[in-house]
Design a protein around this nucleic acid. Sequence first.
DNA 1: ATAAACCTTTACGTGGCGTAAAGGTCAAGT
DNA 2: ACTTGACCTTTACGCCACGTAAAGGTTTAT
Lengths: 253, 253
Amino acid sequence: MEYTVKKLAQLSGVSGRTLRYYDQIGLLKPARINTSGYRIYGEKEVDLLQQILFYRELGFGLEEISRIVHDPSFDQVAALKNHHKALEEKRSRLDKLMTTVEKTIASLEGGAAMQDNEKFDGFKEKLIHDNEQKYGKEIRDKYGDDTIDASNKKLRNMLQEDFQAMTKLEEELFELLDKANATGDPAGKEAQELAEKHKQWLMYSWPTYSKEAHAGLAEMYVADERFTTYYDKRVKGGAKFLHDAILHYTGRM
Amino acid sequence: MEYTVKKLAQLSGVSGRTLRYYDQIGLLKPARINTSGYRIYGEKEVDLLQQILFYRELGFGLEEISRIVHDPSFDQVAALKNHHKALEEKRSRLDKLMTTVEKTIASLEGGAAMQDNEKFDGFKEKLIHDNEQKYGKEIRDKYGDDTIDASNKKLRNMLQEDFQAMTKLEEELFELLDKANATGDPAGKEAQELAEKHKQWLMYSWPTYSKEAHAGLAEMYVADERFTTYYDKRVKGGAKFLHDAILHYTGRM
DNA sequence: ATAAACCTTTACGTGGCGTAAAGGTCAAGT
DNA sequence: ACTTGACCTTTACGCCACGTAAAGGTTTAT
């Protein structure tokens, strides 16, 4: 199947201008130009555009996307990990901002004045982040040795489906953790619901559930920082709270 | 306390250029200009800048921010509480984005082992392998080899189940397509149910759903014969009907 | 034959600044 | 008193990822 600009635009949801611009900057060239000078795109270009839009969704710049999709020696995984790190920083910056907002509300309501330099704590994080972006580029240039099989586009979509289905249960667990953690009571109703859900989740991968093993895993959650960060990343203090909730649930506390 | 451009810039973390630009567009005028033409800012401007940066963080345009902060009939505390809510939403959006990136990394890292017909199996192996790599040693030490092997087996089955669940959803889609197609009305109740189900099915594999992309895919169903045959093989005229139903559902028709 | 709906290139506009360039001001050290 | 260097000023062009318009050519349907 072949597509003109408008056809591909409708197919993909982007504008015609965008496609011409992508051609102009060499990000997505049409398969050929017909006798009237029209851009004609083929299957390969449809796939490539999909890939481009995927990375665009993730907030990559077009230049970096071009490197990712055109350079076979580009380390896509490293790029994504880098991006993930940037997202994490953005998130912790948001957390600090929220704290500042809370403080400001408190000071407005309570009349206590905030120090001038305190007012901008959240915004300063962004500055640090931006600097790291600059230097990070140099570091990123050093990656890019592994050869990635370029024919994995469709596969990636398929795998995403599975991963999503698999993490759904875990998603629910995190939602419960957030809710229960907000109560602050590891013996409360929500916390016990959380522990119960955690047990269900566990039983998917553990053939034989036992309270001992469950409590043991809870201990590992606070003892091993890989687990701690895993939960704390999503819910602040989540690992400790989950630990406490499980200990109550299993009758150890 | 009074501040020159550089002082306020350092205090707030924005650049001097930004402050001059904000002056230029009338968003943040200095308290006064001294005899040498220097911009001098006071306390009030510090507060105003802080407010401006809050809204900027939330993604508001400077013009809209100007309207918000210069309107005297504005409840600051209420606005800040709104800020906080918006920040929470932004954070959860970031979380979703991070999850998508994580999923992509996971599927890419398994890339080498995944080939055509074995793609899915290869992914399962990779997951099990990762699980072992990450936590295998500790768990083995604590719970013994038998437990681990059984757990791996369970995980294998789980992925198999999920794959089946996905296939089941597609099966339901075909049943709905048959029923809706029989009515002949792509705007009818059944057709809209069909489009909704199709969206659900789609969202398994698309990290970000949009009406545009959905409508675009519908166009592809009738434009690309691989898709047309795929649906027509099961329900005669199914591709065209599904296309029409989706266009109605997404408001394109 | 004509109109509508495409297609093309060229070119300027947008936001939110970054980054010179060219020059004026101020405080400190010599 | 003079120089240095860190500040300040305005003017102006550059950047991304396109949107929008102008001026014209091509295709398709009636």
